[in-house]
């Protein structure tokens, strides 16, 4: 997914925000299923679903948990499927649980893709535009995290050589030693960071207007992409406000029909979520034609 990665961060960020909103707002089995399949396709195209595999077990259990939770606790609904003892299992609860399950799995899948495409640098870049000081704070923190991890290892080594281990001894000793490590890390790092603060001051931080390096430039294609997404979202919002793209379950479950207007909305939904696929396919075709 090279082309999609190359969009300006504002484009990719908007796409993920939009996709998340759709998974939350359009609770309709067809919409959810279509959206979920498209996200899977995007993962397949990006890395043959390798990134998703790490989360597979977590997503599956969460999805199943949510699916089961509803019928177990929720007896509301008129369409009785069966009863277990005195517990009513209704169609409403099962459908509702299923939709919630797909919604949450879909949201996680969107996040997994987000983590691949939106590198910390891209998010920092977006923050630098609106919240410059927060962006510097976040940049510093992200720089410190690997440093702290390295220092914790060093501290662990030294303290073990003194006979203080976090892996041996009673729970109390281990807990005490572990917190001792955090204490050394805190004291040491705050001491060393005095130099970080000085190095920032010495390079003129905090004096006059700070600019930010444009790691990314908005191109015409970025504007086109933003417009494309905006139009689709507007259509979807309009449809949603008029009751489409949403299966009403309570108080009365609506009959499962699929009017034409809903089909239009579904098309818009797919065009939005499938945006990265469209971009990549377009890129692939133009390559083929050119070469």
């Amino acid at each position: 997914m090279k082309r999609f990665h190359d969009f300006h961060p504002i484009v990719t960020f908007s796409y993920y925000i939009g996709a998340l909103t759709l998974f939350i707002m359009l609770l309709h089995p067809v919409f959810l299923a279509a959206g979920f399949l498209l996200i899977l396709a995007i993962h397949y195209m990006d890395d043959r679903c390798r990134g998703l595999q790490r989360w597979f077990f977590f997503m599956l259990t969460t999805g199943l948990f949510v699916l089961v939770l509803n019928p177990v606790f929720n007896e509301r609904g008129m369409n009785l499927l069966f009863t277990v003892g005195s517990h009513r299992v209704t169609l409403e609860a099962v459908v509702y649980g299923g939709m919630s399950g797909i919604s949450i799995i879909g949201i996680m899948a969107v996040f997994v893709s987000y983590n691949v495409v939106m590198s910390p640098n891209k998010l920092l870049f977006l923050f630098a535009k609106v919240l410059p000081r927060f962006a510097v704070l976040l940049m510093l923190t992200l720089r410190f995290i690997p440093l702290m991890r390295k220092r914790l290892t060093e501290i662990g080594d030294v303290q073990v050589s003194k006979g203080l281990s976090v892996r041996e001894g009673t729970l109390k000793e281990r807990g005490k030693n572990a917190m001792g490590h955090i204490q050394v890390l805190l004291t040491y790092s705050l001491e060393e960071a005095l130099q970080t603060a000085d190095s920032m001051k010495a390079r003129g931080y905090g004096y006059s207007g700070r600019s930010s390096y444009q790691h990314f430039v908005i191109k015409r294609s970025d504007i086109a992409a933003l417009l494309y997404m905006f139009v689709l979202l507007a259509i979807l919002a309009y449809g949603r406000l008029h009751g489409y793209g949403w299966l009403e379950i309570y108080p009365v479950m609506e009959a499962f029909t699929f009017p034409r207007k809903e089909a239009v909305l579904l098309a818009a939904h797919c065009l939005f979520i499938g945006f990265p696929l469209i971009v990549e396919t377009g890129e692939y075709i133009s390559w083929r034609i050119l070469n």
């Binding site: 510093l140 923190t141 995290i145 702290m148 914790l152 955090i182 805190l186 790092s189």
Partner: peptide, 17 residues
């Protein structure tokens, strides 16, 4: 700013030991 960053970084790696 630097203090916040240091403590936040420690808070987020603190569970390792």
């Amino acid at each position: 700013l630097v203090i916040i960053a240091v403590i936040a970084a420690i808070a987020s790696v603190g569970r390792i030991p």
